[in-house]
């Protein structure tokens, strides 16, 4: 279900916690699985739950509680824009509108070519860098402008 590499990463996470507390690694394990699979199909959640010796429903609760997990297939590049108040005061909404126009999609939609998914995010703890967006959950792009968005999209399109 998951690659050796992913399993090794999960094992490293498990090792952070005391014996018998494997469940503590569920968040990391789901993240690692999501990076490999692109999103979290339910059979992957069930596999991860079994790997950590926890009931699948408990893993599903976690997967649905934290909003960076994707429970539906998404584009290769997920772009999450913060539109919370501090960002909104500094162009966050404008950036989001620009992305919608450029990609031709709304929030929670994926471009027909499967490249991009646009999401509205909550506070990323980087309000001083507004506007900010996240690429595929793990890379934060700060101080965005329309020009920087253009070059980001160009770079991602070329990948």
């Amino acid at each position: 279900m998951l690659s050796q590499e992913s399993l090794q990463q999960i094992d490293r996470e498990i090792a952070k916690y005391p014996p018998g507390r494997k469940q503590s690694a569920i968040m990391s394990a789901l993240r690692i699985a999501q990076v490999e699979k692109g999103w979290l199909p339910k059979d992957v959640i069930e596999f991860v739950a079994a790997y950590l010796g926890m009931p699948p429903m408990a893993a599903y609760e976690v997967a649905t509680f934290y909003n960076m997990y994707d429970l539906e297939p998404i584009g290769r590049h997920k772009i999450t824009v913060c539109t919370n108040l501090p960002c909104a005061l500094s162009g966050g909404v404008h950036v989001a509108e620009y992305l919608k126009r450029r990609l031709g999609i709304g929030f929670n939609e994926t471009t027909p070519d499967g490249r991009f998914t646009l999401k509205e995010g909550e506070c990323m703890g980087a309000c001083g860098d507004a506007p900010v967006l996240l690429h595929n959950n793990h890379h934060m792009c700060s101080f965005m402008t329309m020009d920087k968005i253009d070059s980001l999209l160009a770079e991602l399109e070329s990948q």
Binding site: R21, I26, M27, V62, N67, Y69, C123
Partner: peptide, 23 residues
């Protein structure tokens, strides 16, 4: 320990639950 998108985990007991691998 890396969170994954839940403001409420800044509340200390929610954070502990999260550390234990729960909601």
């Amino acid at each position: 320990h890396h969170g994954y998108g839940a403001y409420v985990c800044g509340e200390e007991t929610a954070l502990l639950e999260s550390l234990e691998g729960k909601k």
